[in-house]
Simulated assay, not measured.
Amino acid sequence: MKVAIAVFVKTPDLSPVKTRLAATLGRVQADAFFHLAKAANEALLAQAVPDFAAQGISLSAYWAVGEQQGLAHPLWQSRFMHRLHTGEGGLGERMHHVYSTLLHTHDAVLLVGMDSPQNSVSNLRDAAQCLRQPQRLVIGPARDGGFYLFGGNTPVPLSRWTAVQYGQDDTLQQWVAALHGYDIHYLNAMTDVDTAANLRQMVAEMQGELLPEQLALRVFVQGLPHHADSADSYS
């Protein structure tokens, strides 16, 4: 079984990154989180490759880069991760493009953001294993009403992706409604870090043996002043 995991990213200096986080923490701390989260995601996927292989799954990992120029940026150069452009348009169009492109060459595709670096290899493995069943989708719900992971082994028409308003409290509800008729498997809910108030919940969700890059994130959050998220609200 061949599985692709694509991590959606935007490139600093080419696109705004972590703007909501910067509004509370300041740009320096928001940038620090961005780079720590990037390192944690890359380390997680590096660990997932041999883990998946032991389960008979050939895993290919990709940075899904939001800007064409960003493909050449040093930040996304990796010894094992590939790169592809998300294409243009809104988030729905971009996710459809990446999902459809990778589904041509893989048995199943998982799409994730970079904002849930507390994710685990076992959770990703569960997502991939459920896609051994034909004609199935998998969703990881985010606690803010969206989703941190989407995957599948069957085509999903563009019209389904564009029927959703992303970044809303009911995005997941809209997405599930747009996917009526599909067999959907759900993973455990997880926090998607958009604001400072999400950071401590992200740390609380870190389970089991953590990667050094995840431990670095925990140290970063523990070092923040407790008033840093006082103007924020967790949803």
Rank of each mutant, 00 (worst) to 15 (best):
L158T: 03
M202N: 10
H104L: 12
L149T: 11
G208L: 07
A196L: 09
G113F: 00
L210D: 13
V219E: 11
D144I: 07
L210M: 10
L217V: 12
T154F: 00
L172D: 11
A128Y: 12
G151C: 02
P157I: 05
L149Q: 09
L210I: 05
L131R: 15
Y166F: 15
R125I: 13
S159I: 10
Y182R: 00
Y166E: 11
L131D: 10
L172Q: 11
M114H: 02
W161Y: 15
G151Q: 08
A142V: 12
A142L: 12
M202A: 14
L187M: 15
R132H: 03
L217N: 13
G151F: 01
L102T: 02
V121C: 06
R132W: 01
S122V: 05
D183F: 00
D192Y: 06
A177K: 04
V221I: 11
S100M: 05
Q201E: 14
A178F: 03
W161M: 11
G151E: 07
D169Q: 08
C130L: 08
L215S: 12
Y186H: 11
G146H: 03
L179C: 12
R136M: 08
Q222W: 06
V112A: 08
S120T: 15
G145T: 01
P141T: 15
Q165H: 13
L215D: 09
S159K: 06
W175R: 10
I184S: 02
L210P: 06
G146K: 02
S120I: 03
W175C: 07
P212N: 01
F220P: 03
L215M: 11
A216Y: 09
Q168R: 12
N153V: 12
D107I: 07
R125Y: 10
P117V: 07
G223N: 01
R143S: 15
D194P: 12
L217Y: 11
A163Y: 15
A189H: 03
V193T: 11
F147W: 06
D126G: 04
V121M: 11
L215Y: 10
E209N: 10
L149D: 07
G146L: 05
A196H: 08
S116L: 00
A127Q: 04
L111R: 01
Q207D: 13
L103Y: 09
R200M: 05
Q135D: 14
L217A: 05
H185E: 12
Q133D: 08
S159Q: 09
M190T: 09
Q174E: 02
T171Q: 09
A178R: 07
H185P: 00
T191R: 15
G145K: 10
C130G: 07
M202D: 04
H185V: 06
T195P: 04
V221L: 00
D107C: 13
V221P: 00
